[in-house]
């Protein structure tokens, strides 16, 4: 079964944000389904917009409306009885509190069973969360994993409102003509940290999540004024120069869709 592209879900966030900025109305009346790729940056937008007044029009579907209300208003609920999703966890500034959140995500996703196995799933959430702490200088950051058993995929999203991947590399002294060039470099191992053993997390995860010998899924990265979506099939790969368009993001969104169930894989086939 073909996993659908995540770009339209990011576009849905862009559209909602654009309408909210131009009309003062966050109109979700037409939203009948929402994925982490839309929900996380939308939550980030609402958090960053505190103090501004947006008229909120909830989705007409009451189930979806309740879900969004829960996710946006209460990101730390004890929802262990609902095993199909993890709420959007805000990452604490104090990293010593983060292990418990990552443990909880592992537990709620059955320790990665059906999502490449424990080691691969832990590698995905641990490395990308580490990157947020190491590079982004965020004020707000979130992680969310949700399993769609009928749609047969799992979506995991990471969002932060920090200095972006291009911003982090430029701050370290690297020069790029476009944000997209910086993002491509980061995927292929460039790190803002000086040690040469650094810079593996993003690239290894892109390969592990998309390779046919890996999880065979899709990865979407949006950071500043650049973005790409990557999958094994060439026809599903896209690069985006976002420029000053409404698609640009003050922060970084990384979303991954993995076929569910996926066989257990060895992360060591992708590490170097």
């Amino acid at each position: 079964m073909m996993i659908p592209s995540m770009w339209p879900e990011y576009g849905r966030f862009v559209n909602l944000r654009h309408i909210a900025r131009t009309t003062g109305r966050l109109d979700m009346g037409g939203v009948n389904w929402i994925y982490p790729t839309t929900l996380l940056p939308l939550t980030g937008f609402l958090v960053a917009s505190r103090g501004e007044t947006y008229t909120y029009v909830p989705p007409s579907d009451t189930d979806v409306a309740d879900y969004i209300k829960l996710m946006i208003e209460n990101p730390f609920p004890d929802r262990l009885n609902r095993k199909s999703y993890v709420p959007n966890h805000f990452l604490p500034r104090n990293q010593s509190d983060t292990d418990a959140i990552l443990d909880r995500i592992m537990k709620l996703q059955n320790d990665g069973r059906g999502i490449g196995g424990e080691t691969a799933f832990a590698y995905l959430i641990d490395e990308l969360t580490t990157n947020i702490y190491e590079h982004s200088e965020f004020k707000n950051a979130m992680v969310m994993a949700q399993r769609y058993e009928k749609k047969r995929f799992v979506e995991v999203s990471f969002y932060d409102d920090g200095i972006t991947i291009p911003g982090s590399l430029r701050r370290a002294g690297f020069m790029y003509s476009t944000d997209l060039d910086a993002i491509k470099d980061a995927v292929n191992g460039k790190s803002s940290k000086e040690e040469y053993e650094r810079g593996y997390g993003l690239g290894t995860n892109v390969r592990m999540c998309t390779d046919i010998e890996g999880l065979g899924g899709k990865v979407l990265v949006v950071s500043g004024r650049g973005a790409f979506e990557y999958a094994r099939e060439k026809s599903e790969q896209r690069l985006y120069n976002l420029g000053e368009s409404p698609y640009s993001l003050n922060g970084t969104l990384i979303s991954v869709r993995i076929p569910y169930p996926s066989k257990e894989i060895s992360v060591y086939d992708f590490t170097e």
Binding site: L180, V187, Y200, G203, V206, F228, Y240, F270, E272
Partner: peptide
Amino acid sequence: HTRIDFEGIPVINL
């Protein structure tokens, strides 16, 4: 590094 090959991927300018 086993690189992700971005060559030949269509670039969309928005």
